[in-house]
């Protein structure tokens, strides 16, 4: 057996310290060690995008990242989006609800985290830019048109919210 390694990581603004096996992936670390089940596990080999989280602000695959690799890093997951005081959904989450960007919802946390990154860097993306940004996320039930519409709606609401 191999020795456990210490991992100090900030997740959604809270600092955690755990001793883990080096082979533990970040997504299993989030789900099993920190009990943050919002990040889903899909293909487990870096194709489907379900497990997308932000690592130091950039979208990454938590199924292909070891927990030991994020030692010292800042990780942001879907759980960070809801307003902590009112419990209201984040505008991107609400847009996915309103524009029917999900059916079963299994892929949704990945799509939304990728959208968080996209709209932070590009508040008014073209359809082509949205498609390119979401290239690494798969949905097997809704189809992509309503997801595209959700991102467009979220972008519009966020822009309007900023102006208001």
């Amino acid at each position: 057996m191999t020795d456990k390694q210490r991992v100090c990581v900030t997740v959604n603004g809270r600092r955690y310290e755990r001793w883990v096996e080096p082979r533990l992936t970040l997504v299993d670390f989030l789900r099993h060690e920190l009990h943050l089940g919002g990040t889903h596990v899909g293909c487990e080999h870096g194709i489907c995008g379900l497990c997308t989280v932000l690592i130091d602000g950039r979208s990454g695959r938590s199924c292909l990242t070891l927990a030991v690799q994020v030692d010292g890093a800042e990780v942001t997951t879907i759980e960070s989006l809801r307003d902590p005081s009112t419990g209201a959904l984040h505008p991107i989450q609400q847009a996915f609800v309103d524009a029917h960007g999900l059916q079963c919802g299994f892929c949704t946390p990945g799509f939304i985290m990728t959208t968080v990154e996209l709209l932070r860097e590009n508040p008014d993306p073209s359809d082509e830019e949205i498609k390119r940004a979401l290239d690494g996320n798969l949905c097997r039930c809704t189809g992509y048109q309503s997801i595209l519409a959700s991102v467009r709606l979220a972008a519009r609401r966020l822009r309007e919210g900023r102006e208001a």
Binding site: G46, G49, I55, S59, G60, L64, R132, G136
Partner: peptide
Amino acid sequence: VADPQIRHR
């Protein structure tokens, strides 16, 4: 190369 999430790392 692959997709945005892969390209970041």
